[in-house]
Amino acid sequence: MRGRGIAFHLQLAFTLLLASFLIVPVLASMLAGVTANYLSGVAGGLTLRWLGEVWSGYAGQVVSSLGLGLACLACTLVLGVPAAYVLARRQGHVARMIEELLVMPVAVPGLATALALIVTYGTWGDFRTSWSFILVGHVLFTLPFMVRSVLAVMAAIDLKTLEEGAASLGATFGQRFLGVVLPNARPGIVAGALMVLTLSVGEFNMTWLLHTPLTKTLPVGLADAYASLRLEVASAYTLLFFVMIVPLLVAMQLLSKPLGSGRRQDR
């Protein structure tokens, strides 16, 4: 490495500044969630009071959000993994068109999708007021991430030849799919699953329109809290959200690293 000049230090300072722009408010809000009074700062003492208040008031929404996320994950696994497999095995225009269509819910703003769902199915009595109404929205929005993630891994492993190899050894389609396709697509499935969970737990754009007073998720509760409660409570609620989401994000980061470096060694 060359000696580091002024350019290096300028860029380092810039990058540090950008990183603090992202991290400082996160830390500040975490801190605010446990200070007795944010205006007087840490000096005013730390307290778990706000967290307790949030937990007693909103634990139901936390549990609902987690349940919804898991249900959404199950749906995207069942729908998305087979779809990704077909898209990986098919080369033609039709397959590419279907792929393009399947990722559309990500390109179209959630607000529009939610509105479309409401005007179409909003009058279906129980469906509108049930959790499955929100679940449908979440599945639509997260399915592309599962498909993309699995498809990327499948495209990188020459699935066709692996499957032909298994078939030549006598494996039936079921044996090939369970014994060769799924295990080798695992990194993509795991990455997709983390992404789906993260997005579902944090989804707001659609959920705000799709929810009813009886079906509230964590981000809906957050929006309520931001609008009406004092900063410390809002912060405590945000802290609770971070506790849920940050492990998922960290897991995603850790997961993506060995994958990247492993590919490099192969070259």
């Binding site: 492993i157 020459d158 030849t161 692996l162 032909e164 190899g165 298994a166 078939a167 030549s168 050894l169 006598g170 494996a171 039936t172 014994g179 060769v180 295990p183 080798n184 695992r186």
Partner: peptide, 28 residues
């Protein structure tokens, strides 16, 4: 192919990365 009982050696070998050497050989 899965009932034709022919052994194939592919150009790219098509060894299953999720299995050990022995598991690959025993797969059939």
């Amino acid at each position: 192919i899965e009932r034709r009982d022919v052994g194939i050696v592919f150009q790219s070998y098509a060894l299953f990365p999720n299995m050990s050497v022995r598991e690959n050989v025993a797969y059939g």
